[in-house]
Simulated scan of single mutants.
Amino acid sequence: MARPTPELIDALRRTARNLKNGAPYQWGHMGGCNCGNLAQELTKLSKDQIHQYAMQRYGDWNEQVDDYCSTSQMSIDIVINEMLNAGLMLEDIKHLEKLDDRQVLVRFPLEKRFLKHNVRDDVVVYMNEWANLLEEQLLAKITLPNFQALERAEFEAV
């Protein structure tokens, strides 16, 4: 599962909002599909640029991830590297394209877990729920100081 970073959480929510508001969506287009739309947010590249980079090598996002090389200077590998730097793992990219990460799906009621990977509305709810999950994980890592104990200690020291 992805590292919960503010950048990734925000990008997931922006992508979902853009899709909900009518951003171009075409599952068979490497720059306009589930991963392509998120890649646009994370890299600030256009859908056409992402698609062009992906077409320099064969395959869909799953195959691109399988062939990913962190030291390559291929354009699509640079795009994937930026996605990974935002907190994604390679498996997350594959799961996003198919909307099939179990940790995300289990958060939906049973009757709502059967999302279609190429339906815009399903992509929107999946991304929003994934962002919620990552935000919960991020917040769980934050511990605030016990201010009451600090105040007591300061008072007793006086």
Rank of each mutant, 00 (worst) to 15 (best):
L134M: 09
P24E: 14
N21F: 12
M89G: 03
V119W: 01
D77M: 04
N85I: 13
N21V: 06
I93R: 00
G31L: 13
Q49M: 11
T43Y: 06
L19F: 09
N34H: 05
R120M: 01
L115K: 06
N37P: 02
D77W: 06
N85P: 00
T15W: 05
L8M: 12
L90I: 04
E91R: 13
A11F: 07
S75W: 11
W27R: 06
N85E: 15
C69D: 15
D60R: 07
A86D: 05
L88N: 02
F114D: 13
S75V: 04
A54C: 15
D48G: 09
V65Q: 03
C33R: 03
H117F: 13
I9Q: 00
R107Q: 12
R13N: 12
T71A: 06
S72M: 10
A39S: 14
Q26I: 08
S75I: 07
R107W: 03
E63D: 11
A54R: 10
P109R: 13
L12T: 03
K94W: 08
D48M: 12
L12W: 01
W130C: 00
T143L: 11
N62C: 04
Q137D: 09
S46R: 04
H29R: 10
G59H: 14
N37R: 15
E41I: 07
D100I: 06
G22D: 07
L134H: 02
V104K: 00
A11W: 01
H29K: 11
V119P: 00
K44N: 15
L144C: 10
V104D: 00
N118V: 00
